[in-house]
Amino acid sequence: MTHDTGSDEMLEAAARAYARGLPELPAALDDRVMAVVRGRPVPAVPRPRHMPNVWRWLVEPKQVRPAFAVPLAAAAALALFFVARQTAPRAASAPAVAAALPADTIYVRFELAAPAARNVALAGSFNSWGEQSIVLARGVGGTWSVTVALPVGEHRYQFVVDGERWVSDPTAHAQVADGFGVTNSVIVVSPRGVVRS
C-alpha cells in the first residue's frame, strides 16, 4: 500500500538520521577501564565441578534397552525426587548431593504453571539473560520446571514463554522494576538454601 510504503521509507530515514546523531564514546574510556582493572586481581577460572560416579551415572545420557526402561525410569524418577526434595527453594538442610558442589552453590528448582505454553525458558542474571540456555520441562498439568545450580547471592530472573513473552515469577521472594517497565523477579540464595522473607 502507498501509505505503508511511505511510512516504511520515513521510518528508515528516521533511523538513519537518529543513528547519525548518536556519538561514539571517546577512546579515553579505554584508559579509564584499564586504570581500574590493572589494580584488580587477575580473574580466576572456577574449578571444574567434580561429579561423584553415582551422580554422573544418574545424569549422563545413556542408551536404554526396552526391557530395562521401566525400572530405570523409576530409578530416575526417584533420583529426581531426591534432588528436588533436597534442593527446592524452601529446603534449608545441606543435601548430600549438593555436598559435591562448591560450598557457595545451591540447587534451586524453578516452576511455572503455564498449561498453554509451547515452551518455557529461564533467563536471569545467572545466565546473562540468555533466552534459550535454560529450558524448562513440561510436567503434569502444564507446570514447567527446571533445577539450576546457583551461586550464593542475589539473582534476578524471568521466565520466557514461547520465546517471546517475558513473565515474572508470581512466587518470587521479591519483584523489582528494571526501568524499562518490566518487572524482574528476585531470588536470594544463601549457603543454607533459598532465603524467603
Binding site: L11, A13, A15, R16, A17, Y18, A19, R20, G181
Partner: peptide
Amino acid sequence: QGELAARLEAALDQLTPEQREAFVLKYVD
C-alpha cells in the same frame, strides 16, 4: 533530519525492551 530523529527517539521509548533492542540493532547498528 533532526525532526525525524527526534520523533523516532521519542517513539522508541514506547516500545517494549525487546522490540527496542531489536530495532536499534537492526536499523541503528
